[in-house]
Amino acid sequence: MSRSRTDIVLVWSLRGCAALAGAIVLLIVVFLVLESLPALQHVGLARFFTDASWQPSEGLYNLTPMLWGTLFAMAGAVLVATPLGVLSAMFCHYYAAPVVARFYRRLIELLAGIPSVVYGLWGLVVLVPLIGSLHPPGPSLLAGIAILTIMILPTIALMADAALANVPAHYLRGASALGLSRWATIRGVVFPAAKSGLFTGVILETGRAIGETMAVLMVCGNVVQTPANVFEPIRTLTANIALEMAYALGDHRAALFVSGLVLMAVIVVLVAGAERISKGRVYG
């Protein structure tokens, strides 16, 4: 009797926590919609994608270049960081001596703990002048991709590490009993078994890359344009909000909330896409 009562309490408190977490997400969406309503009513959703440029003081609100900026920076960083992260986890598990592996893992964890503004400052005073000497002006999509890559690398490296650690030991024993080489084991046994864990890592790093603001704001140059090459400056949606929110009024302010709404939509599309690809077992 007392046992079932404990169960009931547990179930209801868990339901409460889950409801709270869900409600927070819903409240954020409702808040974003409410705050962006004035702009959606005065300007209309279509003009956020068809206007000539982004000049809020002159009533022009095109978000498309910033959407591209966000997607390019994110895609570039994910494409570079994912192989690096997975290879680093592979090295850690199957190639490095245990002492080296332990030290290396601590190092990656340390990397994950560095605040983004530190990366941004380093990017601004070291990386940007370096890129500028190669190909002016310096603040560019490339700088943004480089900084984001360093920032999301620990996320994917640690997630891949955990995914590889979860591969059942008898799989590996079975593989060595069959006389498979180390690489054949990794390719044929470990990767298929760790696939969903690796995929979760990619989703998490992508989310981090999209949401990053300060570091990107400091190194990307923030010019509103669709970049023709990686040396051109870009502005991301997050940087747009951070740059202009402090002084924005009226429709301009509401338009920045529309930026947030578009960002939210991008993330929804990404997660939905990921769910589809993995047939609903992203976090499985």
Partner: peptide
Amino acid sequence: QVIIGDNEQGIKTVAG
């Protein structure tokens, strides 16, 4: 080529 937010960011950009 660069758009900045606050003054300090502008000074760091020019100094760099």
